[in-house]
Amino acid sequence: MADAEATRHGPGRILIAVYGIFALAATSRAAVQIATQFSEAPIAYILSAVAAVIYCAATFALAKATVVSRKVAYVAIVVELVGVLTIGVFSYLAPEDFPDQTVWSHFGQGYFFIPVVLPVLGLLWLRRTASGTR
């Protein structure tokens, strides 16, 4: 059990801080978009909300740092990676379906491309801290 704790210490402290910032950013963006202009681009705004849920789940799971929460974090981060890559590609291929920005549009261009780097770092960190937790 003690080893799972490693997830939230050391460099993990910074990783979780960045996840927390994106959880806050994605949640507020989705809340404002859905509350004020939902009919303009429902698909994009639903995806914003999905991204927000994923970031919140990853943040809390990484911060909780138990054997079970690490598995939750792993699933959330894999979904995040698939999401940012898929939305990234589609926002270039079918820009008309993405009239407004989501966190993952154009691979997170509006967020300094951090959204495409973050899940990779997350998976590497989970792997690095994996010893003794399985």
Partner: peptide, 27 residues
């Protein structure tokens, strides 16, 4: 949103006993 970041960041940093707490606060 700007009001939330620093207090939470500070709490998160205080709970870490290594240098990485200060690093997280820098972020």
């Amino acid at each position: 949103g700007a009001l939330i970041v620093l207090p939470v960041g500070a709490l998160w940093a205080l709970a870490e006993s290594s240098r990485w707490g200060a690093g997280a606060l820098a972020v």
